[in-house]
Design a binder for these strands. Structure first.
Ligand SMILES: [Mn+2]
Ligand SMILES: [Mn+2]
Ligand SMILES: [Zn+2]
Ligand SMILES: [Zn+2]
Lengths: 144, 144
DNA sequence: TTTAAATTGATATCCGTTTTCACTTTTGGA
DNA sequence: TCCAAAAGTGAAAACGGATATCAATTTAAA
């Protein structure tokens, strides 16, 4: 079995939670399209093939993915939480197009190191960070 | 007259808006304590001396300050918008203590330059960015 | 199979933000 | 100074995404 699914099932078992048909469906749907989707996004996508699955269940299941480390929440300032499948991905930060909403990813170890140095200078034990660049992407015409 | 107030009055005039007693009061209160306050924070503070001023007016006036560039919105992930008086301050980013909520400020021109380089590499016209370090501040005991 | 515990999905509730609207205030011209 | 048009105010309602509720259903261990 794939290690991601394994991890999810292990988390459920460890918490005394149950494996269900809905959770399997949501797992598959999210894993195959887990790039910065909102609960609404994923709910609407799933509903096409599985009309019975409720919004609340999608919401709760995304929280479960987050709790067990398979997913992370993203907040890009448009007032809704987005979720990203992070299993097997390196840490990265984001560029967000303010015109079309496209999200790109970047990683820069120099910045990461500088951040750590700043935290240390402030006697700060850094547990996480958020770094987002907002602007106009190339296909939205950064030239005009 | 102070240039900040001047700027505000000029903005109002330019937009066909009016100068009011309430806006003056909110201007003074916010300018003298405009460090990452929520609308609620400022409303409660103002209400002590001016019980007649409504939450909606505080909200609308903070938006005006933001529109004219005297203030900026901050989103530190606790679900409420905070406002900061930025007139006369240099650009900076933030360290946020996840335990006590304290906010410190930092600026690092190396990071700023690296950011610009990344944006350029992606053909991205960067208009703003958000960079926050989350963790435990020194007085909350990063040692335990 | 039995049964206790967890899950589900429709719906209600929460809570910060924003809008509404009847009344008041500002402001520029008469 | 007075007037009228336009904007502002504050209490309350509406909004919207996230979360909680609860009766019915499903899971899984015995
Ligand atoms: Mn990402
Ligand atoms: Mn600041
Ligand atoms: Zn774009
Ligand atoms: Zn602290």
């Amino acid at each position: 079995m794939e290690p991601d699914r394994q991890k999810f099932l292990a988390y459920l078992a460890g918490q005394g939670l149950k494996s269900t048909r809905q959770r399997d469906i949501i797992f598959d749907a999210f894993r195959s399209d887990g790039s910065h989707v909102s609960t609404e996004d994923l709910y609407l996508k799933i509903r096409r093939d599985h009309p019975g699955i409720g919004y609340a269940t999608v919401h709760r299941t995304l929280k479960l993915f987050t709790e067990c480390g398979l997913a992370e929440e993203r907040h890009f300032g448009d007032g809704q939480v987005r979720y990203e499948w992070v299993a097997g991905k390196e840490h990265h930060d984001h560029l967000v197009c303010v015109r079309c909403g496209a999200v790109s990813e970047f990683e820069d170890e120099d910045i990461e190191a500088l951040q750590q140095r700043i935290a240390r200078r402030y006697g700060f034990t850094m547990t996480s960070h958020r770094h987002e660049l907002y602007g106009v992407c190339s296909s939205c015409g950064g030239e005009d």
